[in-house]
Design a binder for these strands. Structure first.
Lengths: 159, 159
DNA sequence: TCAAATATGATGCAATTGCATCGAAACAGG
DNA sequence: CCTGTTTCGATGCAATTGCATCATATTTGA
């Protein structure tokens, strides 16, 4: 672990600042769009999509937490609200009474599909029409590397 | 405006998902670090830095809003709290009684500097030690393009 | 010049989030 | 077995954020 206390270079600082601002801007614009159509927040979509992709449409809160990177207590209460809306159902976890399984309902699946109808095109509009396919791939690769942290040694040259 | 209703490609979707998750992860880690040292939220830092860089350490709430991309009412109340802490001071805007100027105080400058002592190295650790200088520049360029939107025609080849 | 439209900032109230902590179940290892 | 530790999820309460709307000041344009 070299140089643990040094200030970041300009390139690194720029990358950081823009990571935050670009996210804020694009998320803001997309959420505004979902809102005008009367759809819930993106966090609901994240959870619905995660469940829909999980085997049998079931997953534990802890898994959801790791997938969407929310705090434990926020997941807990988000699931409360989604359960009230009938999008999701809590069922006991076989063999461990601490844990639970969360299962997506038919309404949940339906809402996810309807939201994608707005959300997908919005993503396309804000990213797909701004970046080339190549650039999108590059961006995705760089962000992945960032998420995996400094122990990740994935090769990533310029094409 | 071609293809306005189509779903995004895989590359675009990946870029989007990772933009959100990478931001969530790195911001979460850095804020946790600031918190353990007893420092306030990053949003406070954003405002302090913006003011510190503004001429005479002054700027209007509207400018701050555009710089940090928060909602107007959040800026309004964030400034309330910062003013109570003596980091910032509201003064009248000459020639327009709707507007106001926000001025950073000495305490504000001092806090910004102290925060940077933790924040800077944290950025360096989470980004500078993960991406090469080259990659950081690439990432910054791609994110800039994303922020500027599809009318931006900045050239961005691979070096 | 005056009324309508727009721009800037504040605020009441509801919803969400953050923080600390709890309770219960599983696990570790003596 | 027990006991201390860890894991999982919930929750009371305070702080922040979202939403709608207000108040005031400026600009526009008829």
């Amino acid at each position: 672990m070299v140089q643990n206390k040094r200030d970041p270079s300009d390139a690194v600082t720029d990358a950081w600042v823009r990571l935050v601002l670009a996210e804020r801007k694009v998320v803001g614009e997309i959420e505004a769009e979902l809102k005008t159509v009367g759809f819930p927040n993106l966090s609901w979509y994240d959870v619905l999509l995660h469940l829909k992709r999980a085997p049998d449409g079931r997953s534990s809160p802890k898994d959801i937490e790791n997938a969407v990177l929310f705090e434990q207590y926020n997941i807990s209460r988000l699931l409360d609200r989604m359960e009230v809306e009938g999008l999701v159902r809590r069922i006991p976890f076989p063999g461990d009474k601490r844990r639970q399984l969360v299962e997506i309902t038919e309404e949940g699946r339906a809402l996810q599909r309807r939201m994608w109808g707005v959300y997908g095109p919005a993503i396309n509009r804000f990213i797909g029409e701004t970046l080339t396919e190549q650039e999108a791939r590059q961006l995705a690769a760089l962000l992945l590397k960032l998420m995996n942290g400094k122990d990740d040694r994935t090769k990533n040259d310029c094409s």
